[in-house]
């Protein structure tokens, strides 16, 4: 137990250290940071206007109203922001594997995957993060319980997004550069989570619970926050950890083949 606690404390210290380093690296390019944040706000606001006009025209859509869609937007923005800020390397995984940069992380006395994911930040993620929080505060019920649930769901959203990226990028270990595939999958899950989950029916729904698990990332959280159900919440957390474990497993399977030196395109 004690060693487990020290491990947690150590991991947390490293995490803080990475964040400090990341933040000061980001601050070297303040202008670019503000440009990105500005662009992101503009982009998101355009969509908000789209939804406003649309709901104004058609009332509710499959049980979702304007507030419900704004919940999805706030959740996705915060979740995406957390992933970008704290696990920024998740979008570069293919390149790191492909260029053999994995060696650097393998030579650190830390668990490879968390160490790797944490070691880069997209400073613009702070923009998404704060935008999502502001959107939530302005459009949603801000009772303590809802804020608390929103916090948990945002973390789980980030967990799913990062897991999905890890899973698809890990294909690079086995079949050559999968960067494009991983990038598109991550775009896809974000695109889906920004629309009411009730829109999608039939076999697509299966895909949205598995290959692109938008349901676990956004729609089920919305149902829970609307009508709280503890069993559902626990099931959701369970499902999220299954997804994360699969991603972790695939990565380590790939790592094993990397360590054998037999991976494709190995340069010796």
């Amino acid at each position: 137990m004690k060693s487990f606690l020290t491990a947690i404390v150590k991991a947390f210290k490293l995490f803080i250290s990475y964040q400090k380093t990341n933040l000061s690296a980001g601050m070297e390019y303040r202008a670019a940071f503000f440009t990105q944040v500005f662009a992101m706000i503009l982009n998101n606001s355009a969509f908000i206007i789209f939804w406003m006009i649309l709901f104004d025209r058609v009332g509710t859509i499959e049980g979702y109203d304007f507030q419900a869609v704004m919940f999805l937007w706030a959740l996705a923005a915060v979740g995406f922001g957390i992933a970008a800020v704290f696990f920024g390397n998740s979008t570069y995984l293919s390149r790191i594997i492909y260029n053999g940069e994995l060696d650097v992380y393998l030579l650190h006395p830390k668990p490879v995957l968390p160490n790797l994911l944490m070691s880069r930040t997209h400073v613009s993620g702070w923009g998404d993060l704060s935008y999502g929080i502001i959107l939530f505060l302005f459009t949603q019920d801000t009772s303590i319980s809802h804020l608390f649930l929103f916090g948990i769901f945002s973390l789980l959203f980030a967990l799913i997004l990062v897991s999905l990226r890890v899973m698809y990028h890990s294909i690079t270990f086995f079949m050559g550069n999968a960067e494009e595939l991983a990038a598109r999958s991550s775009d896809a899950i974000i695109s889906f989570t920004l629309y009411p989950g009730t829109l999608f029916k039939g076999p697509v729904l299966l895909v949205l619970h598995t290959l692109i698990p938008a349901a676990f990332a956004a729609w089920i959280p919305y149902e829970i926050i609307k009508n709280f159900d503890l069993t559902k919440l626990l099931l959701l957390i369970g499902a999220d950890f299954v997804i994360a474990s699969i991603a972790y497993g695939v990565f380590h399977l790939g790592l094993r083949s990397y360590e054998s030196g037999n991976r494709m395109g190995a340069r010796l």
Binding site: K10, L14, S17, Y18, K20, T21, E28, P109, N115
Partner: peptide
């Protein structure tokens, strides 16, 4: 070393990596 940062920052980060 982190390309955009002074070496001392990387040194302290590495110090944390190595506990």
């Amino acid at each position: 070393l982190w390309f955009h940062l002074p070496p001392v920052d990387s040194f302290y980060l590495l110090a944390d990596i190595y506990d």
